[in-house]
Simulated assay, not measured.
Amino acid sequence: MAGVVVVGVDGSASALAAVETAAREARLRGASLKVVHAFMWPAMHVPLDPSPLGPPEGGLRTMVERLLAEAVERAVATAPGVEVTSSVVTGEALTVLEAQSRAAELVVVGSRGMGGFVGLMVGSTAVHLAAHGRCPVLVVRGDVRTEGPVVVGVDGSAPGGRAVDFAFREAELRGTTLVAVHAWTAWNAPVPEPQDPAEPYASPPGALAEAEERLLAEALAGHRELRPGVVVEPRVVHGPTREALIEAGRGAQLTVVGARGRGGFTGLLLGSVSQALLHHAPSPVAVERGG
């Protein structure tokens, strides 16, 4: 049974860019596309039909019908052959799209929507869904490309492993290289087992770097066996993770991260690295929360 890709629209330019990306994602997966608009006005008991004193084509209901029609038209033009449906759901955008994510294999949103605050680099809907969505969330931002590699941040954690699996599938679907980036510093790297029990805190030169290279190789091994057709470029970077992934994302089709990784604070649903990517990545970002 084919899955469904959901895209949220609100009439903004950012949402229309998300529609195009979502249509291509649906085509890659052999999935259908569902265009969803969260219509909050009925719950606020605001008149929806045209005013008797205004033009017949006015009114909130007509406005929503127009923006949905434009979004569907854009999707069909971008990916002919993909089944496209549209739906107006009463409620606030965050709640509506989180509910939609329960039955979707991917939810796509723009980085900014209508009503975003001036100067804010990413909208609250995108951040909320990345933290709470029940499926991977793709936030369309920066340069949208159909060529270039898929980039994934690898940290060896269980949530990070699910992000690696998603990234391998994305690279396989797109027929492109997967750049697997593992960044480390002396502050976030596990200390290797001491070779000399008399000096438990001493490590031989290069031991940390070797341990991090092993971590990356082990994190990729099982995924490489499952998808041997994916060409992988492993990169071990000695430096901050956020900067390493932002740099690797230049020219990429997609950057994939887990919602949280090793070293995250208990209770946080979205880690500092994934938040930084949502705000500053130069290309689209997918966050895999892992359930």
Rank of each mutant, 00 (worst) to 15 (best):
Met1Ser: 09
Ala2His: 11
Gly3Ser: 13
Val5Gln: 06
Val7Pro: 02
Val9His: 01
Ser12Thr: 07
Leu16Tyr: 10
Ala17Ile: 05
Ala18Cys: 13
Ala18Pro: 03
Thr21Cys: 13
Thr21Met: 13
Ala23Met: 09
Arg24Glu: 14
Glu25Thr: 11
Leu28Ile: 10
Arg29His: 14
Gly30Tyr: 06
Leu33Ser: 02
Leu33Thr: 00
His37Thr: 06
Phe39Gly: 07
Phe39Arg: 07
Pro42Ile: 08
Met44Pro: 14
His45Arg: 11
His45Ala: 14
His45Glu: 14
Val46Ser: 15
Val46Thr: 15
Asp49Ser: 15
Pro52Trp: 08
Pro55Ala: 09
Pro55Asn: 12
Pro55Lys: 14
Gly59Ile: 05
Arg61Asn: 12
Thr62Lys: 11
Val64Asp: 07
Glu65Phe: 05
Glu70Phe: 13
Val72Asn: 02
Thr78Ile: 11
Thr78His: 05
Ala79Asn: 02
Pro80Leu: 02
Pro80Cys: 04
Val82Phe: 04
Val82Thr: 02
Val84Cys: 09
Val89Arg: 05
Glu92Trp: 10
Glu92Gln: 12
Ala93Thr: 11
Gln100Trp: 00
Gln100His: 01
Ser101Met: 06
Arg102Ala: 15
Arg102Gly: 12
Glu105His: 10
Glu105Gln: 14
Leu106Trp: 06
Val107Asp: 07
Val109Ile: 06
Arg112Cys: 01
Gly113His: 06
Gly115Leu: 09
Gly115Thr: 08
Val118Cys: 15
Val122Asp: 03
Ala126Gly: 10
Val127Pro: 02
His128Glu: 10
His128Arg: 13
Leu129Phe: 03
Leu129Asp: 01
Leu129Trp: 00
His132Pro: 07
Gly133Tyr: 02
Gly133Trp: 00
Arg134Leu: 02
Pro136Arg: 06
Leu138Phe: 06
Val139Cys: 03
Val139Ile: 03
Asp143Ile: 13
Arg145Glu: 12
Glu147Gln: 09
Val151Leu: 07
Val154Gly: 00
Gly156Pro: 01
Ala158Cys: 12
Gly160Glu: 07
Arg162Glu: 04
Val164Lys: 02
Asp165Tyr: 01
Asp165Thr: 04
Phe168Leu: 10
Ala171Arg: 04
Glu172Trp: 15
Leu173Lys: 14
Gly175Ser: 11
Thr176Pro: 15
Val179Thr: 04
Ala180Gly: 15
Val181His: 03
His182Arg: 07
Ala183Met: 02
Ala186Gln: 14
Ala189Cys: 07
Pro190Asp: 05
Gln195Phe: 13
Asp196Ala: 13
Pro197Ala: 02
Pro205Lys: 08
Gly206Asp: 13
Gly206Ser: 12
Ala207Trp: 04
Leu208Ala: 02
Ala211Trp: 04
Glu212Ala: 06
Ala221Thr: 14
His223Glu: 14
Arg227Val: 08
Gly229Gln: 09
Val232His: 12
Glu233Phe: 08
Arg235Asp: 12
Val236Glu: 03
Pro240Glu: 01
Pro240Lys: 00
Glu243Trp: 15
Ala244Leu: 04
Leu245Tyr: 00
Leu245Asn: 00
Ala259Pro: 03
Arg260Ser: 09
Arg262Tyr: 05
Phe265Met: 11
Leu268Phe: 06
Gly271Met: 04
Gly271Trp: 01
Val273His: 00
His279Gly: 05
Ser283Val: 11
Pro284Tyr: 01
Val285Lys: 00
Val285Cys: 03
Ala286Ile: 04
Glu288Lys: 06
Glu288Leu: 05
Arg289Met: 05
Gly291Ile: 06
